[in-house]
Measured scan of single mutants.
Amino acid sequence: MTEYKLVVVGAGGVGKSALTIQLIQNHFVDEYDPTIEDSYRKQVVIDGETCLLDILDTAGQEEYSAMRDQYMRTGEGFLCVFAINNTKSFEDIHHYREQIKRVKDSEDVPMVLVGNKCDLPSRTVDTKQAQDLARSYGIPFIETSAKTRQGVDDAFYTLVREIRKHKEKMSKDGKKKKKKSKTKCVIM
């Protein structure tokens, strides 16, 4: 069974824990209790493949930012979460993405942009803004509501699919490099 290491990042209060708990335990946590770091595991079937999701729910508070490099190193894919009623959390996505790329030393890291709290009427981040940002990053965008469960499975499952595509691409690139290195030079 394939294991996928997913990391949920975003500013404090955007609903990272609520999304994760909704996926794992099928219930909505409405009281806000700032996370330092929590880890969850769940076995699911995605596109006919049974897999184990190892999900790291991270601290959004700035005082825990020193811990970010460590979990970013171990993560295979990242859910970059903002709240649709919090423009600052949307603007912060850029910083999370840049930090992930720096730590992973790669421009090509599996990510999904997630606009959470889409059940709320007080939207300050337009869907088109988020779609445009995701398009500019070359990553999928999904709106979710941890409260109603809308888009929750889709967000995590899409990230797994992005990781699969990335692994497939990397193995193809690896095979191309191996083929090239088999060419021999004969000096007579």
Rank of each mutant, 00 (worst) to 15 (best):
G138I: 00
T183A: 11
K172S: 10
I187S: 15
G138Y: 01
Y157A: 14
K128D: 12
R164L: 09
R135P: 02
E143D: 14
V152W: 15
K175E: 15
R164P: 00
Q150A: 13
K167F: 01
Q131W: 04
D173W: 03
T158M: 14
K165S: 06
L159W: 00
A146S: 08
K178D: 14
L159R: 00
F156M: 09
R161L: 01
G174L: 13
I139W: 03
R149W: 03
A155Y: 01
S181C: 08
Y157Q: 14
M188H: 15
V125G: 02
T158F: 05
C185D: 15
K169E: 14
V160T: 03
D132C: 04
V186D: 15
T183Y: 03
A134N: 05
E168I: 10
K175I: 05
K165P: 00
K172L: 10
S181V: 05
C185S: 15
G151R: 03
G174V: 11
A155P: 09
E162K: 05
T144Y: 01
I187G: 15
E143C: 04
M188F: 03
K128G: 11
T127F: 11
V152Y: 13
E162S: 08
A134M: 04
Q129N: 11
Q150S: 10
K172T: 09
E162R: 03
T158N: 07
K147E: 14
K167E: 04
G138W: 00
V152E: 07
D154T: 08
K184V: 00
S145L: 03
Q129S: 12
A130I: 15
A130D: 03
Q131C: 09
S136T: 10
V160P: 00
M170D: 14
K178F: 06
T158A: 10
K175Y: 15
Q150M: 04
F156H: 01
Q150P: 09
A130M: 15
E162L: 05
R149G: 14
K169L: 13
H166R: 08
V160Y: 04
D132Q: 07
Y137G: 03
D154E: 14
H166G: 08
K176Y: 08
K178L: 11
Q129Y: 09
L159A: 04
C185G: 15
L133N: 03
K177I: 11
L159I: 11
D153V: 13
K172A: 13
R135S: 09
K167G: 04
G151N: 13
Q131P: 03
Q131T: 07
S181P: 04
I139R: 01
I139C: 08
I187D: 15
E168H: 08
K165Y: 02
D132F: 03
A134L: 03
Q131L: 08
H166P: 01
M188G: 15
V125R: 01
E143Y: 03
K167W: 01
K182F: 03
T183L: 03
G151E: 11
T158K: 06
Y157L: 10
R149S: 07
D153Q: 13
H166C: 06
Y137P: 01
K177H: 06
G151S: 10
Q150E: 12
V125Y: 01
F156T: 02
D132T: 05
F141S: 02
K176W: 07
A134Y: 03
V160W: 02
R149V: 09
V152D: 06
V160H: 03
K167M: 02
R135F: 10
Y137T: 06
K184W: 00
D154G: 06
F156Q: 00
R164A: 11
L159T: 01
H166E: 04
A130V: 13
V186S: 15
E162M: 13
K178C: 11
T127I: 12
M188Y: 13
S145F: 07
I139E: 02
K175G: 13
T127A: 10
K177L: 14
K176I: 03
Q150W: 04
L133T: 05
R164Q: 15
Q129W: 15
V160F: 06
T127S: 13
V152C: 10
K167S: 05
H166L: 09
G151M: 08
T127V: 12
Y157V: 14
K128Y: 07
V160I: 13
A155E: 00
F141G: 01
F156W: 07
V125Q: 00
V152Q: 11
K172G: 10
K180A: 10
Y157D: 11
S136C: 09
Q129C: 13
R164H: 12
K176H: 14
D132R: 04
G138R: 02
A155M: 14
T144M: 08
V125M: 02
T158Y: 08
L159P: 00
E168V: 08
V186C: 13
Q131K: 12
K128N: 12
T183H: 06
V160S: 02
D154W: 03
F141D: 00
K172W: 06
V186L: 11
K167A: 04
R164V: 11
G174H: 00
Q150G: 11
V160Q: 05
G151P: 07
I139D: 02
T158R: 04
K175C: 09
R149L: 09
S145P: 00
S136F: 09
D153L: 13
D173G: 11
P140W: 00
K167P: 01
D154S: 09
T144L: 06
K165Q: 05
T144S: 08
R135V: 06
K176A: 10
V186N: 15
D132L: 05
G174R: 06
R161S: 10
T158W: 06
E162Y: 01
K177T: 07
R164F: 06
V125L: 01
D153Y: 12
S181F: 02
A155G: 05
F156K: 00
K165C: 02
D173K: 06
M188Q: 15
R135Q: 11
K165I: 04
K177A: 11
L159Q: 00
T127M: 13
K165M: 11
K176D: 15
M188R: 15
D153S: 12
K169S: 11
V186A: 15
G174F: 00
Y157K: 14
K167I: 02
L133D: 04
I139T: 04
A155I: 14
K178V: 14
K182I: 04
R161W: 01
I139H: 04
Q131F: 05
L133Q: 03
A134P: 02
D154R: 06
D173R: 05
K172Y: 12
T127K: 07
K175S: 08
K169H: 11
T144Q: 05
D132W: 02
E168N: 10
L133H: 04
G151F: 07
E162H: 03
R135K: 11
V160N: 02
K169A: 12
D132V: 04
K128V: 10
R161P: 00
L133C: 05
I142H: 02
E168M: 11
Q129T: 12
V125D: 01
E168Y: 09
C185K: 15
K178H: 11
F141V: 04
K165N: 07
F141P: 00
T127N: 12
K177S: 11
M170G: 09
K177R: 07
